[in-house]
Computed example of a mutant assay.
Amino acid sequence: MKVFTVDLSICNGCYCCQIACKDEHVANDWTPYAKPQPDTGQFWIGLTEKVRGHVPHVKVTYTPFMCNHCDDAPCIADCKADAIYKRDDGIVIIDPVKCIGCKICADTCPHNSIYFNEQLNIAQKCTGCTHLLDNDDEWTVPRCVDQCPTEALRFGEEEEFADFIKDAELLNPGAGTKSRVYYKGLPKKFIAGTLYDPSAKEVIIGATCTLKDNDSGETFTETTNNFGDFWLDGLGDDRTYTLTLEKDGVSKVIENITTDIDRGLGDIPMDMSS
Protein backbone atom coordinates (compact mmCIF):
# COMPACT_ATOMS: atom_id res chain seq x y z
CA MET A 1 0.00 0.00 0.00
CA LYS A 2 1.12 3.55 -0.74
CA VAL A 3 2.52 6.01 1.79
CA PHE A 4 3.78 9.59 1.77
CA THR A 5 7.00 10.40 3.63
CA VAL A 6 8.10 13.90 4.62
CA ASP A 7 11.63 14.79 5.75
CA LEU A 8 11.42 18.23 7.34
CA SER A 9 15.19 18.48 7.67
CA ILE A 10 15.45 19.07 3.92
CA CYS A 11 12.20 20.93 3.28
CA ASN A 12 13.20 24.49 2.36
CA GLY A 13 9.73 26.02 2.23
CA CYS A 14 9.71 26.60 -1.53
CA TYR A 15 5.95 25.92 -1.80
CA CYS A 16 6.48 23.91 -5.01
CA CYS A 17 4.22 21.14 -3.68
CA GLN A 18 1.38 23.56 -2.97
CA ILE A 19 1.76 25.32 -6.32
CA ALA A 20 1.90 22.02 -8.24
CA CYS A 21 -1.31 20.85 -6.57
CA LYS A 22 -3.05 24.08 -7.57
CA ASP A 23 -1.74 23.78 -11.12
CA GLU A 24 -3.04 20.22 -11.41
CA HIS A 25 -6.47 20.66 -9.87
CA VAL A 26 -7.66 24.26 -10.22
CA ALA A 27 -10.04 24.56 -13.24
CA ASN A 28 -9.47 20.88 -14.11
CA ASP A 29 -12.27 18.34 -13.79
CA TRP A 30 -10.88 14.90 -13.02
CA THR A 31 -14.20 13.13 -12.35
CA PRO A 32 -14.61 10.47 -10.99
CA TYR A 33 -11.52 11.31 -8.92
CA ALA A 34 -12.24 14.97 -8.17
CA LYS A 35 -14.06 18.03 -9.41
CA PRO A 36 -12.03 21.25 -9.88
CA GLN A 37 -10.32 22.66 -6.80
CA PRO A 38 -11.23 26.30 -6.06
CA ASP A 39 -8.42 28.71 -6.83
CA THR A 40 -8.61 30.10 -3.28
CA GLY A 41 -9.61 28.74 0.12
CA GLN A 42 -8.39 25.17 -0.29
CA PHE A 43 -4.92 23.64 -0.03
CA TRP A 44 -5.09 19.91 -0.68
CA ILE A 45 -1.43 20.07 0.21
CA GLY A 46 -0.30 23.15 2.09
CA LEU A 47 2.70 24.39 4.02
CA THR A 48 2.94 25.82 7.53
CA GLU A 49 5.89 27.89 8.71
CA LYS A 50 6.94 27.76 12.37
CA VAL A 51 9.55 30.17 13.78
CA ARG A 52 11.00 29.22 17.17
CA GLY A 53 13.49 30.63 19.64
CA HIS A 54 14.92 34.09 20.21
CA VAL A 55 17.21 36.14 17.96
CA PRO A 56 19.95 35.23 17.19
CA HIS A 57 19.12 31.61 18.05
CA VAL A 58 16.16 30.92 15.80
CA LYS A 59 14.97 27.87 13.87
CA VAL A 60 12.38 27.87 11.08
CA THR A 61 10.53 24.67 10.22
CA TYR A 62 8.31 24.19 7.16
CA THR A 63 5.73 21.41 7.43
CA PRO A 64 3.72 20.15 4.44
CA PHE A 65 0.27 18.88 5.42
CA MET A 66 -2.35 16.96 3.46
CA CYS A 67 -4.97 14.25 3.78
CA ASN A 68 -3.49 11.47 5.91
CA HIS A 69 -5.21 8.72 3.87
CA CYS A 70 -5.95 7.00 7.16
CA ASP A 71 -6.43 3.25 7.52
CA ASP A 72 -9.09 3.95 10.14
CA ALA A 73 -10.57 7.01 8.47
CA PRO A 74 -13.54 8.47 10.39
CA CYS A 75 -14.65 10.27 7.24
CA ILE A 76 -15.36 6.90 5.61
CA ALA A 77 -17.23 5.57 8.62
CA ASP A 78 -19.33 8.71 9.04
CA CYS A 79 -20.20 9.40 5.40
CA LYS A 80 -23.98 9.06 4.96
CA ALA A 81 -23.79 8.73 1.18
CA ASP A 82 -21.06 6.06 0.98
CA ALA A 83 -19.17 8.58 -1.14
CA ILE A 84 -15.78 8.09 0.56
CA TYR A 85 -13.78 4.95 0.05
CA LYS A 86 -10.26 3.59 0.48
CA ARG A 87 -8.62 2.15 -2.60
CA ASP A 88 -6.61 -1.06 -2.60
CA ASP A 89 -3.45 1.07 -2.80
CA GLY A 90 -4.38 2.91 0.42
CA ILE A 91 -5.47 6.25 -1.10
CA VAL A 92 -8.74 7.65 0.27
CA ILE A 93 -11.06 9.20 -2.32
CA ILE A 94 -14.22 11.31 -2.04
CA ASP A 95 -16.44 10.42 -4.99
CA PRO A 96 -17.53 13.84 -6.32
CA VAL A 97 -20.63 12.33 -7.96
CA LYS A 98 -21.94 10.52 -4.89
CA CYS A 99 -21.13 13.32 -2.39
CA ILE A 100 -24.35 14.99 -1.18
CA GLY A 101 -22.71 17.96 0.54
CA CYS A 102 -23.69 17.10 4.11
CA LYS A 103 -20.29 18.34 5.44
CA ILE A 104 -20.07 15.56 8.03
CA CYS A 105 -16.69 14.37 6.75
CA ALA A 106 -15.20 17.86 6.95
CA ASP A 107 -16.45 18.19 10.52
CA THR A 108 -15.27 14.76 11.62
CA CYS A 109 -11.75 14.78 10.08
CA PRO A 110 -9.32 15.17 13.03
CA HIS A 111 -6.59 16.38 10.66
CA ASN A 112 -8.60 19.26 9.16
CA SER A 113 -7.76 17.91 5.72
CA ILE A 114 -11.22 17.96 4.11
CA TYR A 115 -12.57 21.14 2.56
CA PHE A 116 -16.06 22.08 1.44
CA ASN A 117 -16.72 23.56 -1.99
CA GLU A 118 -19.74 25.79 -1.53
CA GLN A 119 -20.18 26.38 -5.25
CA LEU A 120 -20.25 22.69 -6.15
CA ASN A 121 -21.78 21.58 -2.80
CA ILE A 122 -19.24 18.80 -2.33
CA ALA A 123 -16.40 17.90 0.03
CA GLN A 124 -12.91 17.82 -1.47
CA LYS A 125 -9.35 16.89 -0.53
CA CYS A 126 -6.06 15.39 -1.73
CA THR A 127 -6.58 12.51 -4.15
CA GLY A 128 -2.94 11.46 -4.39
CA CYS A 129 -3.28 12.47 -8.06
CA THR A 130 -4.81 9.05 -8.71
CA HIS A 131 -6.17 10.34 -12.03
CA LEU A 132 -2.54 10.42 -13.17
CA LEU A 133 -1.40 7.22 -11.47
CA ASP A 134 -4.26 5.21 -12.98
CA ASN A 135 -4.28 6.60 -16.50
CA ASP A 136 -0.77 7.66 -17.44
CA ASP A 137 2.09 5.15 -17.36
CA GLU A 138 4.61 7.98 -17.10
CA TRP A 139 3.28 9.05 -13.70
CA THR A 140 4.33 7.04 -10.65
CA VAL A 141 4.02 9.83 -8.04
CA PRO A 142 1.59 12.71 -7.39
CA ARG A 143 2.37 16.16 -8.79
CA CYS A 144 3.42 17.52 -5.39
CA VAL A 145 6.07 14.81 -5.01
CA ASP A 146 7.27 15.19 -8.58
CA GLN A 147 7.82 18.92 -8.07
CA CYS A 148 9.66 18.71 -4.73
CA PRO A 149 13.22 19.89 -5.54
CA THR A 150 14.85 18.51 -2.39
CA GLU A 151 12.94 15.19 -2.30
CA ALA A 152 11.69 16.07 1.15
CA LEU A 153 8.32 14.76 -0.01
CA ARG A 154 8.22 11.21 -1.35
CA PHE A 155 5.58 8.63 -2.28
CA GLY A 156 5.63 4.90 -2.86
CA GLU A 157 5.05 1.45 -1.47
CA GLU A 158 5.15 1.07 2.30
CA GLU A 159 7.81 -1.64 2.06
CA GLU A 160 10.04 0.68 0.05
CA PHE A 161 10.09 3.20 2.89
CA ALA A 162 10.31 0.71 5.79
CA ASP A 163 13.61 2.15 7.06
CA PHE A 164 12.20 5.69 7.01
CA ILE A 165 8.94 4.69 8.70
CA LYS A 166 10.54 2.88 11.64
CA ASP A 167 12.11 6.14 12.83
CA ALA A 168 9.29 8.45 11.71
CA GLU A 169 6.40 10.12 13.51
CA LEU A 170 2.82 11.03 12.73
CA LEU A 171 1.75 14.66 12.61
CA ASN A 172 -1.33 14.04 14.77
CA PRO A 173 -0.81 10.70 16.56
CA GLY A 174 -3.48 11.42 19.14
CA ALA A 175 -6.16 11.04 16.48
CA GLY A 176 -5.51 7.30 16.34
CA THR A 177 -6.52 7.04 12.68
CA LYS A 178 -3.49 5.09 11.42
CA SER A 179 -2.17 7.77 9.13
CA ARG A 180 -0.26 6.88 5.98
CA VAL A 181 1.78 10.11 5.97
CA TYR A 182 5.04 9.79 7.92
CA TYR A 183 7.30 12.62 9.12
CA LYS A 184 10.89 12.99 10.23
CA GLY A 185 12.24 16.13 11.85
CA LEU A 186 9.06 17.37 13.47
CA PRO A 187 9.97 20.35 15.70
CA LYS A 188 11.10 19.54 19.24
CA LYS A 189 12.13 22.01 21.90
CA PHE A 190 15.69 23.32 21.90
CA ILE A 191 18.07 25.25 24.15
CA ALA A 192 20.77 27.31 22.44
CA GLY A 193 23.28 30.00 23.25
CA THR A 194 26.63 31.61 22.45
CA LEU A 195 29.56 31.12 24.84
CA TYR A 196 32.22 33.82 24.99
CA ASP A 197 35.20 34.93 27.07
CA PRO A 198 34.65 38.54 28.22
CA SER A 199 38.33 39.02 29.08
CA ALA A 200 39.61 37.92 25.68
CA LYS A 201 36.57 39.38 23.93
CA GLU A 202 36.38 36.18 21.86
CA VAL A 203 33.87 33.39 21.49
CA ILE A 204 34.82 30.08 23.05
CA ILE A 205 35.18 27.29 20.49
CA GLY A 206 35.05 23.59 21.36
CA ALA A 207 33.53 23.92 24.83
CA THR A 208 31.55 20.92 26.05
CA CYS A 209 27.90 21.70 26.74
CA THR A 210 26.05 19.10 28.81
CA LEU A 211 22.33 19.40 29.45
CA LYS A 212 20.77 17.22 32.16
CA ASP A 213 17.07 16.59 32.64
CA ASN A 214 16.47 17.32 36.33
CA ASP A 215 13.78 14.63 36.62
CA SER A 216 14.88 11.76 34.39
CA GLY A 217 18.64 12.31 34.50
CA GLU A 218 18.84 12.05 30.69
CA THR A 219 21.73 14.05 29.24
CA PHE A 220 22.36 15.79 25.94
CA THR A 221 25.84 16.88 24.88
CA GLU A 222 27.13 19.32 22.26
CA THR A 223 30.27 21.35 21.65
CA THR A 224 30.38 25.01 20.72
CA ASN A 225 31.09 25.65 17.05
CA ASN A 226 33.38 28.19 15.38
CA PHE A 227 30.95 30.95 16.32
CA GLY A 228 30.76 29.87 19.97
CA ASP A 229 27.21 28.63 19.40
CA PHE A 230 25.64 25.47 20.78
CA TRP A 231 22.28 23.92 19.92
CA LEU A 232 20.77 21.23 22.15
CA ASP A 233 17.78 19.93 20.22
CA GLY A 234 15.19 17.18 20.47
CA LEU A 235 14.15 18.12 24.00
CA GLY A 236 10.87 17.32 25.74
CA ASP A 237 8.10 19.82 26.37
CA ASP A 238 7.84 21.51 29.76
CA ARG A 239 10.97 19.92 31.20
CA THR A 240 13.53 21.47 33.54
CA TYR A 241 17.24 21.16 32.78
CA THR A 242 20.66 22.02 34.21
CA LEU A 243 23.28 23.18 31.71
CA THR A 244 27.01 22.71 32.37
CA LEU A 245 29.53 24.48 30.13
CA GLU A 246 33.19 23.40 30.34
CA LYS A 247 36.46 24.16 28.56
CA ASP A 248 40.06 23.57 29.76
CA GLY A 249 39.08 23.08 33.39
CA VAL A 250 36.85 26.17 33.54
CA SER A 251 33.13 25.56 33.95
CA LYS A 252 29.85 27.39 34.32
CA VAL A 253 26.51 25.98 35.45
CA ILE A 254 23.07 27.37 34.58
CA GLU A 255 20.20 25.82 36.50
CA ASN A 256 16.44 25.55 36.10
CA ILE A 257 16.18 26.12 32.36
CA THR A 258 12.65 25.21 31.28
CA THR A 259 11.38 24.14 27.88
CA ASP A 260 7.90 25.60 28.06
CA ILE A 261 9.21 27.45 25.00
CA ASP A 262 12.28 27.08 22.78
CA ARG A 263 15.09 28.78 24.71
CA GLY A 264 17.67 31.02 23.16
CA LEU A 265 19.94 31.97 26.05
CA GLY A 266 21.80 34.67 24.14
CA ASP A 267 25.43 35.50 24.93
CA ILE A 268 26.82 33.60 27.94
CA PRO A 269 30.06 34.87 29.48
CA MET A 270 32.65 32.42 30.86
CA ASP A 271 35.99 33.96 31.91
CA MET A 272 38.72 31.58 30.78
CA SER A 273 41.41 33.48 32.76
CA SER A 274 39.94 32.57 36.14
Score class of each variant (00 low, 15 high):
Trp139Cys: 07
Leu133Ile: 15
Gly266Cys: 00
Tyr62Ser: 06
Ile76Asn: 01
Asp237Thr: 13
Ile19Tyr: 12
Val51Asn: 07
Ala20Met: 08
Asn121Thr: 13
Leu211Phe: 06
Lys103Cys: 10
Asp39Asn: 15
Glu158Trp: 01
Pro96Arg: 08
Thr5Gln: 11
Asp95Cys: 06
Arg180Met: 15
Thr40Arg: 13
Cys11Tyr: 02
Pro269Val: 13
Gln124Cys: 10
Pro110Asp: 01
Val58Gly: 07
Leu243Tyr: 03
Ala207Ile: 08
Thr259Ile: 01
Val92Ser: 04
Ile93Ser: 05
Leu232Cys: 03
Ala162His: 11
Leu171Lys: 13
Val26Ala: 01
Ala73Asp: 11
Ala162Ser: 11
Cys126Asn: 00
Pro74His: 00
Ala106Glu: 14
Ala123Val: 08
Met270Cys: 03
Val55Leu: 12
Ala192Leu: 00
Gly41Thr: 04
Ala192Asp: 00
Asp88Gln: 09
Trp30Leu: 09
Asp82Glu: 11
Leu133Trp: 06
Glu202Val: 13
Glu24Cys: 11
Glu49Pro: 05
Ile205Ala: 08
Leu232Tyr: 00
Asn225Ser: 02
Glu202Ser: 12
Val60Pro: 04
Val145Lys: 04
Cys209Gln: 10
Gly206Asn: 12
Val92Tyr: 06
Phe227Cys: 09
Thr177Leu: 10
Phe220Glu: 11
Thr108Leu: 09
Leu170Gly: 08
Arg87Thr: 11
Phe230Gly: 01
Ile257Gly: 01
Thr210Asp: 08
His54Gly: 06
Asp82Asn: 15
Ser199Leu: 12
Gln42Ala: 15
Thr127His: 00
Lys103Glu: 14
Pro64Tyr: 00
Ala73Val: 03
Cys102Phe: 11
Thr61Ser: 14
Thr259Ala: 00
